[in-house]
Design a protein around this nucleic acid. Structure first.
Lengths: 194, 194
DNA sequence: AAAATAATTGACTGACTAGTCAGTCTTATG
DNA sequence: CATAAGACTGACTAGTCAGTCAATTATTTT
């Protein structure tokens, strides 16, 4: 694929994200997406064989974007706890930084519109997070909580934190304090009772 | 409205819930809903002026159903903490007991398809939960956490608990232990540090 | 029982849907 | 410059959508 073609593909994905976020993906037609991306309706289907494939690509795009935001500064040598805290904090910051993308990602996650193939592909990309949680659990950081439950609680707390931060339009130190508070709730709640 | 008419209205709402849950609300047509409810397409629009109004009614129906499940045994005289714990636990039990309705409610909540009018109407019905949280906060049960953040964290933890319970098909004592664990995470995490 | 009222029906409408394809335009190559 | 390859176009198709309405059936009133 040429550079130009990859550009157009990204252009279509960006246009899709824009419209999906603005109007909901269940009533955004391929015709509108094409128009918003500045191409003909047929061109969309040169790059994506179906609307479903486009949705898959959007989901993949968003998750990789999130990963790219989270990864920098990963404290691999400071222990499992620090790594989880880093990922949690960066996730929260990404959500506040890119609310539209974050909200669309959450919607797609619950929609059952994303194919299993893409879920599998993503497991390779962000599977390190699951390993991280499993390691922490084995080190006894999480008390009796199971792997899945720990993952669900981590996701739930970060989501709640992002949503409240967005609702109150927190920025700067107030935002940092709020994020620290959210992380503290998770950390205190999930730790084994002595 | 006669009893018969109210029956048919409920019949339509139940059929809608059934199909929405089975196939997703964004590709369930009014024609299919009518057929599934055993009436003609026109009849649906005698009871609901539009599909949007039907969705509103479904959302209201689900929330009131949840409220009805949560309310019994409310320990009004055992203090704010006990009341919140009761509501949290019963919510979790409702989600596990009625997974289809619970999941649909969550989807609708995030969909922006429900009108403000219905949200307002529901505030009157389930506003007592917010007052409960505010009271608890004023009593210092929640440390520095704001009202909205407390509400978000309560919702987030109960959702995570339900989802994991459903994924693992927990029942009986294992389910009760899991729910207790989820509540404990919230409670430990949110309590003020000494 | 007759008349009036209300509820129900389903064929129908115009707008919209995902996806196609014959033809046009752009770009790369010899 | 000429030719071939590939990218792009948008009118078009077959089908679905929410919502309508004249006709029919059921119920209530007189």
């Amino acid at each position: 694929m040429t550079t130009k073609a990859r550009d157009k593909k990204n252009q279509l994905i960006e246009a899709t994200i824009d419209l999906f976020a603005k109007e909901g993906f269940w009533n955004t037609s391929t015709a509108r997406i094409s128009k918003h991306a500045g191409v003909a309706t047929g061109t969309l289907f040169n790059y994506f064989p179906s609307k479903e494939a486009l949705i898959d690509a959007v989901y993949l795009h968003l998750k990789l974007e999130m990963k790219a935001f989270i990864t920098p500064g990963y404290p691999a040598d400071e222990g499992t706890g620090a790594c989880i805290a880093h990922v949690w904090r960066r996730y929260a910051e990404w959500g506040v930084h890119s609310p539209v993308h974050y909200q669309l990602l959450e919607q797609l996650r619950l929609s059952n519109l994303v194919s299993q193939q893409i879920e599998d592909r993503l497991m390779e990309e962000i599977g390190f997070m699951h390993e991280l949680i499993e390691t922490a659990r084995q080190q006894g950081l999480f008390g009796e909580v199971s792997l899945e439950f720990a993952g669900a609680l981590i996701h739930a707390t970060v989501t709640a934190t992002i949503n409240v931060a967005l609702a109150h339009q927190l920025t700067g130190p107030a935002l940092q304090k709020h994020i620290a508070q959210g992380l503290s709730v998770l950390w205190t709640g999930i730790q084994p009772s002595k």
